[in-house]
Amino acid sequence: MKAIEIKNISKSYGDITAIDDLSFEVNKGEIFGLIGPDGSGKTSIFRMLTTVTLPDKGEAFVQGLNVRTDFKKIRKLIGYMPGRFSLYQDLTVEENLEFYSSVFNTSIADNYELIKDIYSQLEPFKDRRAGKLSGGMKQKLALSCALIHRPEVLFLDEPTTGVDAVSRKEFWEMLDRLRKTGITILVSTPYMDEAAKCDRIALIKDGKILNIDTPDKISSSFQRTLYAVRSADTHQLILDLRSWDKTHSSFAFGDNIHLSLNTDDLKENDILEYIEKKQHSDINVAKIEPSIEDAFIELLKQDENHD
């Protein structure tokens, strides 16, 4: 039995199609990432799997239970952290946690071991109102509340959006430790660097899956040779590369530009030659391995060309 099974699910809100004939499976104990921009349907998938909304078409199962008919049973097995901070801002850290543990008929003490790692960082602020916490702390509290009843499947909808890079890293370290307890985690994120930390990911756009695989295999689905190109004037370099008839794609990645060509005949030297001709200085060209983001951009490009 899979932890999550989705078969040909569709969901529309008025004339907007949020999920379009979507299918995927999540194995028990894995961290599965839904990677896609806002509005790609990630939240709709979460709401449907957490039984908050019903799909228009198709079937979905959580721990083998049907989201349409067994929703009461599912609700006892899952922990959910919605995209928006959904705790009571006027209640303190401890009061929020106590409320959710009582609602699930358990207590903080019973499950302290599970949340200790996360909650111990919050404990110095347990009398602070949740609304007064920083972004990173709010995420930790929300995660603690979602875990308090020992769920079998954890749903985290964009847990790190708007959170700074350091807190994001800490959050993923926690997920990694949670994975060791055997819990299944479905997590969504718009950050590509987080995708690499999942066991498997699905790239989503407009309610459709562009690709599903392990992060490594997704990266290697990028089949062209990729170069990192750099010069003193990044903006001008982009404009120059884009106007080159040999360019397949050129996108900024930090202070580099990731360039792929529409022919396999050219090598680093040819690129260097073209850039030098355009009067750039401090030029550097190097062959690199594609990342998930390169692969996603390529998939998005193909998808747009289809439209």
């Binding site: 896609g36 806002d38 959006t161 718009p190 951009i297």
Partner: peptide, 24 residues
């Protein structure tokens, strides 16, 4: 203030090109 939160990787880069252009 966090102008590109939640947008896809291509749009994010297109957005930065608008920024570059304005700066130019």
């Amino acid at each position: 203030d966090e102008p590109t939160g939640g947008v896809d990787p291509i749009t994010r880069r297109q957005f930065w090109e608008l920024i570059y252009e304005a700066a130019d």
